[in-house]
Nucleic acid binder design. Structure first.
Lengths: 255, 255
DNA sequence: GTTTTTGTTCGCACTTTGCGAACGCCTATA
DNA sequence: TATAGGCGTTCGCAAAGTGCGAACAAAAAC
């Protein structure tokens, strides 16, 4: 229900709000920007950008330092509220921290949300200022370990709807390969990404499913290709992830 | 600069954006709500609310399950991006986790932002679904330990500007009491909140200051009054916090 | 000292918001 | 099974407010 929640095309929407969020996303990427810079980037006039920024500043969601604008820490409040409403977040947090500790790699909790995977939690030995790796970042479902773990436990028609919406095209060969891979994931409960999504970055994932065997999330461990290669050959990682995922899943289902 | 960043009164702003964020804040508090409920709460028509929700859904920031709308995990991305742009967040995280571990209480990093304190980080043994205690939540500066630690290292004229903006009124006695307390904080580098802000909840804080001796944040430890009372009498907590704050401060200043 | 680039303000045309009313669906109750 | 009241959704339209452009101010670059 949640994973493929898209409004119908042509549904009426508020363009002013869209503009506003384009601004926020621009600020997210640029870590501090001025009015002209943002206006150029988004093809808006300076006055429009200025008015929007002033509004956000008044609301306390962005901050102005000298002549540059930045996202405000207050924005975290919306995200953490969303996260705490996840039925399994509080129980997942500790096991994930432990998982990251024992593997000494990055552990994440991925959750499906309108056709993407979204990191609900991310913890590990990597100081990461890259926004696309932080909690809240969106990742493609069909090219990541966590995403594929989720897709493997998602009904076909929903899967197709997602691909259609996200404009993911497969030729028939790619389609077969994916189908085989998903079957394999269902057999082993383990999904892999060997540098598919980010070069030299390996990731292993185990799905979390609800009582109907539909994916509600995935637990992942990821790290640099060479280091992960070694750890994987010792074959302990998938089991550790599996235990973490299972304990979260059990506590979820016993509610 | 950041702490008292307010747009001039009467500055032009975009009312549509304000409405949209009122909606998001309503969703934040209600953990899932329907169109009618939100329309009533915000005194808007159902059609207006519906259009805004559809827009946010299209952008992927909220999610519709059946007939209720919830905040989406994607919102986390904006907040984590803001946080990672803090010059001392990455270095502060680990010491704070350790502080929470050794004290076995909640440890936080509070940062000043337009007249409030904002939790940039919060970690501890309390499963907290209350939004006003999560990372990103805003707390009053003059009634909390973290806030007072920050105020103690903020120039008087900025302090007054904040109080004016946040509509905090003091009679002359209260003003004197606060002044004495802030002086005491400067002498000891330690601020206390003994149930002032939340009943039966004690908090201890140490400021983080920049090279000009202006506050850029505060490290706090907090917990239930009785338990904290005991721990404080053994007098180890303020020192632990102090060490954590100092190590963050040193690394910040050596950049 | 001059030129360029930046942020900010203002008034206005036109896009768009937000409203109200109507519709259809589902649930509760008789 | 009928019916009433609740809900979310759709639509057209008037009023409102967005977004533009031009002009100004202030700072930075040359």
């Amino acid at each position: 229900m949640k994973i493929d929640d898209f409004p119908e095309e042509g549904a009426r929407s508020v363009t002013t709000v869209e503009t506003n969020f384009r601004l926020l996303e621009a600020l997210r990427k640029s870590e501090g920007a001025g009015v002209t810079e943002l206006a150029d980037e988004l093809s808006l006039t300076k006055s429009t950008v200025h008015k929007h920024l002033t509004t956000l500043r008044k609301l306390g969601y962005i901050v102005k330092e000298g002549t540059t604008y930045r996202l405000g820490i207050s924005l975290l409040g919306l995200g953490t509220a969303a996260r705490s409403q996840l039925p399994f977040y509080e129980t997942a947090k500790e096991p994930l921290e432990k998982l990251s500790d024992t593997t000494d790699e990055v552990a994440t909790l991925v959750v499906p949300e309108h056709g993407y995977g979204v990191y609900a939690f991310r913890e590990g030995p990597v100081d990461d200022r890259k926004t696309h790796r932080q909690a809240g970042a969106r990742i493609p479902l069909h090219r990541t370990a966590g995403g594929k773990a989720i897709l493997a436990y998602t009904p076909t028609e929903i899967r197709d709807r997602i691909f259609r919406h996200r404009d993911v095209k497969f030729d028939s060969e790619e389609r077969d390969t994916l189908a085989r891979e998903l079957q394999n994931i269902r057999d082993t409960r383990t999904a892999y990404d060997r540098g598919e999504y980010i070069d030299d970055w390996y990731c292993v994932a185990v799905p979390i499913t609800d009582a109907d065997r539909n994916a509600v999330g995935a637990v992942t461990v990821s790290g640099p290709a060479d280091r992960m290669e070694g750890k994987l050959s010792r074959n302990d990682i998938p089991n550790l992830i599996g235990h973490t995922a299972n304990s979260i899943q059990n506590r979820l289902r016993s509610n």
